[in-house]
Design a protein around this nucleic acid. Structure first.
Lengths: 405, 405
DNA sequence: TTAGTTTTTTCATTGTCTAAAGTAAGTTAG
DNA sequence: CTAACTTACTTTAGACAATGAAAAAACTAA
């Protein structure tokens, strides 16, 4: 039997029909609140009598409330419906290289409350500590909100279907069955995904993609490596074995240095933060500038700070990175023709500085049709993209009937 | 309003519920015929009473018939249902560089009847002739079958949303509004797409992808250029402006020769038939082998024939192409992590010769997870992949409720 | 022939959307 | 201020597609 059949075989029944329409109405309210019943009617085509029933049900469930009225259009004023966002809450966890952020998110994907922990080197004791924090958070809020689930995003190769962190070189973790650990202690659905994919989801729902109404978006995270998350038709694309989006390991130069992936001249060897820092250090040293720091002491943030304060080596190092970044983005644009490429990571904070170089390098390398279709922008979600993505993963059963991600 | 809403806002109604289930049943019969009602029940989960009603309706419409009975399992024998494939027919047209194939296809995507025309240099008079042939075909079959539509596939950049051939360097056509021309003369839905995408669709429905039950497949056509068609989640991915899949213009070498796309060292400069032929000619000439032919006289077929008969230059030229082909396929595998990469074109006919080189070159360059997930194979549809794809485009309204492609 | 099995149909029930009619709550013209 | 009109929403009756239960059909085996 073809796998395709699983989708095709999702038969329609009365229950499913109700659930679909209810989810449509709920999400419409979520995205366009405050909104009146008549607007829902005009947008969805559902009859007003149906909407009366559905909204009543949603109010009974405590998911929505009437909040205020709209000005009259010459007759009865419309009563406006809005979410009770605190009713549906999720826990989002973003496991970064040095810091792990744990947050409470509402149905809108907004951060209600957050706390930061230092990421541990050894996964098991750290995750144990993490679960304790989540438990405390849940207990403290139990009376006021309902928890829908926990979403986790982590750097590295993540097998989201099985909820495992397969290999995360930057964390130094390998084969961690994180979902099972959480599920054993919490009676909630747990979702796990890698940070680039979570960020991509966040951008399409709440960031740049939402503003532009995008369906096809690629998120590029630049940090230790270069990772990408692909959204196609509004849905995350993970590939057949969770390996889609390894654009960071497309080769820019087949005679280039050997990457630890086995290939030569991979994009991330040229565009990662490490590459930028090393370029800076080389030119600094060449110029004979003495400094008190050892190489490992420099972070991307330092280089950016120096570039901002006029340091030539730092500045040109960032521009070189921009150029290499553009080469990889050109590959993405030619192969996937996205509406939007969103860049995240420390580098995004110097966007005005690097954007002209990116555009100039890019333009002659991509099909003009593809170039004019695409918008390249820094992340609109600051450093929270992957956290918001974790929320969205946890919310996904609510965001549409089937699955969003 | 976000575009996503268009999909999300497809509300459920009784009519839609009926159509969905009817389409599910019809397609199940199409793919697994002959099949009994009880099997449909077990596969779909629909109740037998429902299936009785749906199958009766499909029989009334003339789409299916009862054909034979299954052996008893200890009780009443199951009556088997099958398609009346000739009831739903489509016209498929594959516009190739030298030859255009026009065929009658049934609901199974099988070729019922086909004829070949020489492709004309000037588009308008040629398409006119083509339409006349289609009209003759339709008239001659009108009594026996119902025509659902006409599917057209053509090489080059095709804007399928608007039914236009934007630019086809190999045909020498530019900005041809082919759908409008057909629609003016035929009262049938017309679909247009490029050959690589049509082939990808054909492989996933009828070729390698079907055998493997694939959801994610990339088709690589090698001829004058290198084109790709991407199938994600069982659906064609066209990108935001029909520009997805230009892997042929990912650069393998940033100091390579300039491509007419503006970039340098594009994949298709190394892996296309032209590249293979030129490599052969260079080494032939270097070896001082005289020949009566001029350069332009050599075709890919000639090179292949020579390689088969032991010509060293031809043989090594093909192996070099295989190596370059692998480099591009590595990009595809790392970026999209497909279940399957299918190679079409003349080159596919020497698969046993080139496969080892492709695998050996590829393996060290891609992530091992991605490598073990992928199957690389020559097209299973011979030279008909894009024709069958054209059928499928025309059939797509029938193949599922919404859209397949 | 009879009991048991498997497959299919019939028919009453259920539940959701819809259509039509009514109600609520405003505006506007005189 | 009131009658006529508009707009927003609710109620009620009706339509219809899937379902569940029961019956029928068709076969096997003993």
């Amino acid at each position: 039997m073809r796998k395709l059949d699983f989708d095709k075989l999702h038969t329609a029944s009365k229950d499913r029909m109700r659930d679909i329409n209810e989810a449509i109405v709920l999400n419409l309210i979520r995205e366009h609140q405050p909104i009146s019943r008549i607007q829902i009617n005009r947008t969805t085509g559902l009859k007003l009598s149906t909407i009366t029933v559905i909204t009543r049900r949603l109010m009974d469930k405590g998911l929505i409330i009437e909040q205020g009225v709209a000005p009259s259009n010459g007759g009865r004023k419309a009563r406006l419906l809005g979410l009770r966002p605190e009713k549906v809450c999720v826990v989002g966890i973003d496991i970064g290289v040095t810091r792990t952020t744990l947050a409470l998110g509402d149905f809108n994907g907004e951060i209600v409350h957050q706390q930061v922990l230092a990421t541990g080197r050894r996964p098991l004791p750290f995750i144990d500590k993490l679960i304790q924090s989540v438990e405390r958070l849940i207990v403290s809020q139990k009376d006021q909100v309902e928890f829908e689930g926990v979403g986790i995003s982590a750097t590295g190769i993540v097998d989201s279907a099985n909820g495992r962190i397969v290999f995360s070189p930057n964390l130094g973790w390998q084969d961690v069955d994180i979902r099972a650990m959480f599920e054993k202690r919490l009676q909630l659905p747990i979702t796990v995904d890698n940070d680039a994919r979570a960020s991509a989801l966040a951008e399409i729902w709440h960031g740049r993609g939402r503003q532009a109404g995008s369906m096809h978006l690629v998120f590029v995270t630049v940090n230790e490596g270069v990772g990408t998350g692909i959204v196609v038709n509004g849905q995350l694309f993970r590939g057949s074995s969770e390996g889609a989006g390894e654009f960071g390991h497309l080769s820019l130069n087949h005679n280039g240095p050997i990457c630890n992936c086995g290939n030569r001249g991979c994009w991330e060897l040229y565009a990662s933060d490490r590459a930028t820092i090393n370029r800076f250090l080389r030119s600094q040293r060449k110029a004979g500038v003495p400094d008190g720091k050892s190489d490992a002491d420099y972070t991307m943030r330092d280089v950016i700070k120096l570039a901002r304060s006029g340091n030539k080596a730092a500045h040109s190092s960032l521009l070189a990175t921009a150029k290499y970044l553009a080469l990889g983005i050109a590959n993405i644009i030619n192969s996937l023709n996205p509406e939007m490429v969103v860049v995240g990571g420390e580098l995004a904070s110097v966007w005005p500085m690097i954007e002209p170089v990116i555009i100039d390098t890019l333009k002659p390398k991509v099909f003009s049709r593809n170039f004019s279709a695409v918008c390249i922008a820094p992340s609109a979600l600051e450093f929270n993209a992957s956290l918001v993505g974790a929320f969205l993963h946890a919310l996904s059963p609510r965001l549409s009937v089937g699955k969003v991600a």
